[in-house]
Amino acid sequence: MAEHTLSILVDNRPGVLTRVTGLIARRGYNIESLAVDRTEDPRLSRVTLVATAEDVPLEQIKKQLHKLINVHKIVELSAADSVDRELALFKVRAGTAERPELIKLAGVCKAQVIDVGSDTLTIEATGTHDQLAQLEELLSPYSIVETARSGKLALPRGRR
């Protein structure tokens, strides 16, 4: 199943996200990741979503999304001509013994320690999906307590 990243400009209004996600689910797509917030124009929000589908052509989904009155623009972003990032928070079991090691590891991986508890450490990392997966693997020997991840954010490269 192919993975597709869609960047969708929509009206920044209640209920619009339901229209977009409902339509995608109805037409047979599975949403892998989703990120939404308002854009430089407060009347508009950008929905960045990653979806996989069995055999429904992506073109049909885009056409159906275009029919939603609140959808302004849809761009499919390919890895080659866009930049993308995800954000992840990892809360790791860490007593005084593990702390220095973990702080060093975070530094090497360009991640930051944002909270230190009595027996946990929370690390914030930004990167591509694969980079974050790699970090997660490195952290797993230390026993990960909880994680939270954003959906993928993406923009086309270069000028608009």
């Binding site: 209920g15 339901t18 229209r19 409902g22 339509l23 009155i69």
Partner: peptide, 14 residues
């Protein structure tokens, strides 16, 4: 009703 009818309306308003 606006959510119930999402797949069967061209558009809706609350």
């Amino acid at each position: 009703i606006t959510t119930i009818t999402l797949p069967i309306t061209k558009h809706s308003y609350l």
